[in-house]
Design a protein around this nucleic acid. Structure first.
Length: 264
DNA sequence: CGGCATGTTTCGCC
DNA sequence: AGGCGAAACATGCC
């Protein structure tokens, strides 16, 4: 989905919904659980986030929203993130997967909240099960990250994208974090070791708030322009060149000159 | 037109 | 048994 950063932006934008009563719900049954109509008439108690998932708590069922690759949240007619990198800025109403009106504060015809997802890989669940998600990427401690990674036989990149290990990092954030940490994305968790894992944790703490403040996952050093055109490595005085490879099944942009198995 | 895309689930294979 | 990689999913865009 949009990653945890985008979910956090939407969580914040959705706070004004708290306290309102749900007047009406329309949903696309292909991706949104029809049982969610049970939330009609209930009051919104809170909007929280874990990893990439938004949960709208009500006095009835909770509404769990996952955004897939192209889902967006629009609150009171305003899209906090207007356009996603790999989707146009178009907003066709038949891409809405859930629409929710509240009483009495829905702005005119605009739903108080809607999720618009052209590609339809997102989901809207009733009482979502978050039990398999790892610690949230923004909250995780160094010890918890080390513990969560221990025993993994896969690459660092694949491990960090695994939501059971740590919840909220996606392809772009993992590339940014590993770039900043100076750790190779293809290094195995074991090869990276305790010291390298700590570097990864520090890079998460360092980079994620900056990207959040700038507006999301695309605002790292490894931005969309660099993902497309590569070029010289922008890390410190590194003399290397960016390259693109498939790691963990995803396009990975990194610099072999400074992203080493042994961290810099 | 071919290929690729901020993600998750499923299917086989160790 | 269970972790892991590849394929599948669905659609738009360059």
């Amino acid at each position: 989905m949009p990653e945890g950063l985008e979910a956090e932006i939407w969580r914040r934008a959705a706070q004004p919904l708290i306290g309102r009563r749900i007047e009406r719900i329309e949903l696309d049954k292909r991706v949104a659980d029809p049982a969610l109509i049970a939330a009609v008439g209930k009051r919104i108690d809170g909007v929280r986030r874990h990893g990439k998932v938004i949960v709208v708590d009500t006095t009835g069922p909770a509404i769990g929203i996952r955004f897939g690759m192209t889902g967006r949240l629009i609150i009171d007619g305003v899209a906090p993130i207007r356009q996603l990198e790999y989707a146009s800025g178009r907003d066709r109403s038949n891409w809405d997967r859930i629409r929710l009106w509240t009483y009495p504060e829905s702005a005119r015809d605009a739903p108080a909240m809607r999720m618009n997802d052209p590609r339809r890989l997102g989901r809207v669940d009733i009482d979502p099960d978050l039990s398999r998600l790892g610690p949230d990427a923004f909250e995780i401690s160094a010890a918890a990250l080390a513990d969560s990674l221990s025993g993994r036989r896969t690459s660092m990149k694949a491990a960090l994208m695994n939501q059971e290990v740590v919840a909220g990092l996606g392809n772009l954030c993992v590339d940014e974090v590993l770039f900043s940490a100076g750790i190779s994305p293809m290094a195995t968790v074991d090869a990276v070791g305790d010291a390298g894992t700590h570097q990864v944790w520090r890079a998460m703490r360092r980079r994620l708030p900056v990207m959040l403040e700038r507006g999301g996952s695309i605002y790292g050093v490894i931005d969309p322009e660099r993902r497309r055109n590569l070029g010289r490595c922008p890390f410190g005085r590194c003399n290397g060149s960016l390259r693109s490879d498939k790691v963990g099944g995803r396009t990975t942009v990194w610099c072999p000159a400074h992203q080493l198995v042994e961290f810099c």
